[in-house]
């Protein structure tokens, strides 16, 4: 049996804020198999960034506090490692690509230095070897004239080029797992498409396991094998791309899909009613219930567990008390609104 690359178990993370305890990640569990590309979507504040920063030990504690959970990466619990041991994994076995490549690169250091330092730190290469590897990486991510870029500074590159540099840094040490957090959000549509092509190509060539965090369902459809929809620090629905997109089982993923221009076809664009959940005083039951037109009384009372949708679709899971296809069929007026 193939071991998962990542196995997150019951991860709960809170922030101690002056206004009270903010529940950012709630009892989150999922696994990621080798070579899999997981697309994570969800509104702002749904805990996407916080849970990956937690597993890399990059969250400021305080205010953050890990209440419970394990993050098994190739069998080792990252949360139990010392900062030293975690340092050896970060950048080497797990590569990270962050949003906004302007602010995520150091403005006063050359591209070459920022690439070399991660290579030299983990691969034990000397300066010349690291430079050669840096040139190779810049070529890999499609940067023209890579050798000349080493001496340049971030402000001398375009946004798309900077994001490619970030990806090169993430891939520098051939990581087992690459995590990209909103890596294409700051880019314009054409550049975004180029970067997505690049990632798809790299994934096929290198077989890297990828977590791709985004607001954009379209990007997930193009890139991911598995989609995971998060809301209020929980997984609402998860499964292979096709069944989730064609037959969503959670009212939240259904709403997200309905608010996609390309998915809405001839209907009006759907607007999710209500406002994002209060994470300091979350509703008692299903966190999406207050905004869910199909919510049942039980939704307001109990938190639904993540369960298998049907035996016929392996891996498709949903956290819902209601049966969405039946509810939609019973209320065509909501579905057509």
């Amino acid at each position: 049996m193939v071991e998962p690359v990542l196995d997150i178990r019951n991860l709960t993370v809170v922030f101690d804020t002056p206004a009270g305890t903010l529940h950012a990640v709630n009892d989150l569990s999922y696994t990621l198999m080798p070579g899999e590309t997981l697309g994570i979507v969800g509104e702002s504040g749904s805990g996407k960034s916080v849970h990956v920063l937690t597993m890399l030990g990059l969250l400021p504690c305080p205010p953050a506090r890990i209440v419970s959970g394990e993050v098994l990466f190739r069998g080792r619990d990252l949360l139990a490692l010392s900062e030293r041991e975690l340092c050896d994994i970060r950048g080497a076995e797990i590569g990270m690509v962050f949003q906004d490549p302007m602010s995520s690169l150091n403005p006063v250091l050359t591209i070459g230095r920022q690439l070399r330092e991660v290579i030299q730190r983990h691969a034990g290469l000397d300066h010349a070897q690291a430079s050669a590897r840096a040139v190779e990486l810049l070529g890999l991510v499609g940067i023209p004239d890579p050798a000349a870029r080493l001496a340049q500074y971030p402000h001398q590159l375009s946004g798309g080029m900077r994001q490619r540099v970030m990806i090169a840094i993430g891939l520098a040490c051939d990581p087992t797992l690459l995590i990209a957090d909103e890596a294409t959000t700051a880019l314009d549509v054409t550049v975004q498409a180029q970067v997505i092509d690049l990632i798809r190509d790299l994934k096929n060539r290198l077989g890297t396991t990828i977590i791709w965090i985004t607001h954009d369902m379209g990007v997930v459809a193009e890139l991911a094998d598995t989609i995971q929809v998060m809301y209020a620090g929980r997984i609402m629905e998860r499964g292979p791309i096709a069944p989730v997109f064609h037959q969503p089982r959670s009212a939240y993923s259904w709403s997200l899909l309905r608010s996609l221009p390309s998915m809405a076809r001839h209907r009006r664009l759907y607007q999710i009613p209500g406002s994002p959940p209060n994470m300091i005083h979350p509703p008692p039951g299903d966190p999406f219930a207050p905004r869910n037109p199909f919510a049942t009384p039980r939704c307001h009372r109990d938190v639904p567990p993540l369960r298998q949708v049907a035996d016929s679709v392996p891996g498709h899971q949903v956290a819902a008390w209601y049966d969405l296809p039946a509810a939609v069929a019973a209320h065509p007026e909501i579905a057509d609104a």
Binding site: I89, M96, S104, L105, P107, L109, E117, V118, H122, I169
Partner: peptide, 29 residues
């Protein structure tokens, strides 16, 4: 507070490298 410090730590650089090259170096300006 800047993002590039988080990037430096995400690269697994030693804390001293992060401090001198990605924090102090920028504060010098």
């Amino acid at each position: 507070r800047e993002d590039h410090v988080r990037t430096a730590r995400a690269k697994g650089l030693y804390p001293a490298t992060v401090f001198f090259w990605h924090i102090a170096r920028n504060a010098l300006v």
